[in-house]
Design a protein around this nucleic acid. Structure first.
Length: 108
DNA sequence: GGGATGACGCTTC
DNA sequence: GGAAGCGCCATCC
């Protein structure tokens, strides 16, 4: 009863390591434009990202490239992202220009 | 059925 | 850049 869940899971699982995607982005790719919240909802209901990363929601952050979560979960997600090569700015955010799915590190 | 909430996003001032 | 308003919608009380 969760075709959307499947779509979202597929998109999230399709996020290449060292890159992050925003909820809205994932939602759009999943075919759920405007339903970013739905993505978050699904992820919140999603299983934990084990070593196999069934659903690497860790690569999913908000539109600001910031971890929406709070507490240990956020710290853990951040840690994982760093482990994938993601670099967090002193502000605790991520440069979607570099780690975004479309971001290719263009600053000129 | 109604009110409130939420891993959110975008536009406008 | 910061703040405010509006949309989206599924779930919970």
């Amino acid at each position: 009863v969760n075709p959307e869940w499947r779509a979202i899971a597929a998109v999230v699982a399709a996020i290449p390591a060292g890159r992050v995607a925003s909820y809205g982005q994932v939602a759009a790719l999943a075919g759920l434009p405007g339903r970013a919240r739905l993505v978050g909802r699904v992820l919140s209901h999603a299983p934990e990202p084990g070593p196999e990363a069934t659903l690497p929601w860790q690569r999913v952050v908000n539109a600001r490239g910031e971890i929406s979560l709070t507490g240990a979960a956020a710290l853990e997600q951040r840690s994982r992202l760093e482990a994938e090569g993601i670099v967090f700015t002193p502000a605790g955010r991520i440069d979607l220009r570099r780690f975004g799915l479309v971001g290719d590190g263009r600053s000129t």
